[in-house]
Simulated scan of single mutants.
Amino acid sequence: MKSFVSFFSIGLFLGILFIKSEVASWFRIYEMFQFKSFHMYGIIGSAIALGIIIIKYLKYSQAKDFDGKDITIKPKEKGFTRYIVGGIIFGLGWALAGACPGPMYVLIGTFLPSILVLILGALLGTFVYGLFKNKLPH
């Protein structure tokens, strides 16, 4: 129950933050893909920098999770093609849909019914990837 309240609180905070900072705004995403505004690039760049700092801290401080277990981060497989192709597919989906996965769930909270079609499509795409994952080249 303790972790549920913690995760729910973090999710609620991030949802409010996404709406107030206009991260979930299709117009801000549209501006970004037309290179007309620095708004989204600044947010994404800040998130990357903060993520690097937090990951380095977790790796070298021997931090523990809520249950007192060590937090371990497994290294990713090296590769170029899979990240380029995956990034292009993700970027195209983001540009066409006007939302990436985090803000998609935030938009449910704004009672935008059309977002359910987008979420179903994203879940279907994830399921199809899971079916073909082992058949794809490494």
Score class of each variant (00 low, 15 high):
L107Y: 05
A97H: 13
C100G: 14
G98S: 13
F66V: 11
I115L: 05
D70Y: 15
P101M: 02
L96A: 13
R82L: 10
V106D: 00
F90E: 01
I89Q: 01
L92N: 04
E77Q: 11
G93I: 00
G109T: 03
D70T: 12
W94L: 09
T110C: 09
R82V: 10
F66S: 12
G79R: 00
P103K: 05
A95S: 14
W94P: 09
I89E: 00
G86R: 04
L96K: 06
G102R: 05
G68C: 05
G68K: 11
I73C: 03
Y105C: 08
C100S: 07
G91M: 06
I71C: 03
D70A: 05
K69V: 10
K74Q: 06
G91Q: 03
P75T: 14
F111M: 15
T81G: 10
I73Q: 07
K78P: 07
D67C: 11
F111G: 12
G102E: 07
Y83S: 08
C100V: 08
Y105N: 07
D70G: 08
D70E: 10
I84A: 04
Y105M: 10
G109P: 04
K69C: 15
G102W: 10
F66Y: 12
T72G: 07
F66T: 07
Y83A: 10
K74M: 12
A97L: 12
K69P: 06
A99I: 15
